[in-house]
Amino acid sequence: MKPLRLRRLSAQAALIPTWVIVIFAYLGTILWTIRISFTSSGILPKYDFVGFEQYERLFRSARWIISVQNLAIFGVMFIVGCLVLGFLMAVFLDQRIKGEGIFRTIFLYPYAMSFIVTGLVWAWILNPTLGIQHAMHNWGWTSFSFDWLARGDRAIYMVGFAGIWQSAGLVMAILLAGLRGIDEDIWKAARVDGIPTWRVYISIVIPMMSGMFVTAIVLLAIAVVKVYDIVVAMTGGGPGISTEVPAKFVIDYLFNRQNIALATAAASVMFVAVLVVLGPWLYRQYFRKERRAA
């Protein structure tokens, strides 16, 4: 038998690729990105120091402000929409209905498709000339008008709508699993107590599933911050810059507009924002529990 220390050594050795990735691809890139955001780099990185100049430029940029506003609109609409629709679907599927498997399969299949596919399909359905509007005119409803995708003030809502279509099934799946995990006796006790079903959901089940809701919200929130593909596919950021989002802002300035300092400043803002919002939750979720278990 090899001595214990050697065995631990092979565990450490097995983690070398992981360490390389952690140090270079995660920690290194973050630091590098933040460093560039304090320079005056254009196409190529320049390692001078200009303080918060890029950040000031960023928040003076109309495009960035619109991106952030759009992210807020999209985020609220997407998260609330997915939660409400997903919860309703989960609860209704939990009522011992016929064909549950079929309904569940239908509700979840969009989640298997990419945001690119989602965006392209909905862009086609909502196409202002040949889409829904055209179909309604064909059916004789000639006054019907639906051109939100082509209107700068409305297009972002359509992106949100398509996002809900894609992800509501995810919330449904998570919450349905939660509902199925609730002790059968709780339902029995509530029936003996004479509590109506809707009241059981509101007063007992939803509070019991708060963890599931948080999980769903976190997953949706991550999708919100990362939102990029669906905008590219659905509107390309247009009309004009009316559906731009922060993630797209960064990519465009990095690779098309060749202003890497501004792009990295935007990326750093996203990073810090996510860290501030998610950090405490992550800590609570993983490390506090760990300590209690140990």
Binding site: D183, D185, A189, R191, V192, G194, I204, P207
Partner: peptide, 19 residues
């Protein structure tokens, strides 16, 4: 319905409302 039967019931898993 159970509530109209004049019964009270105690369960193995207690089935208390946790919140």
């Amino acid at each position: 319905e159970p509530k109209d039967r004049g019964i009270g019931m105690v369960f193995q898993s207690y089935a208390l409302y946790p919140q």
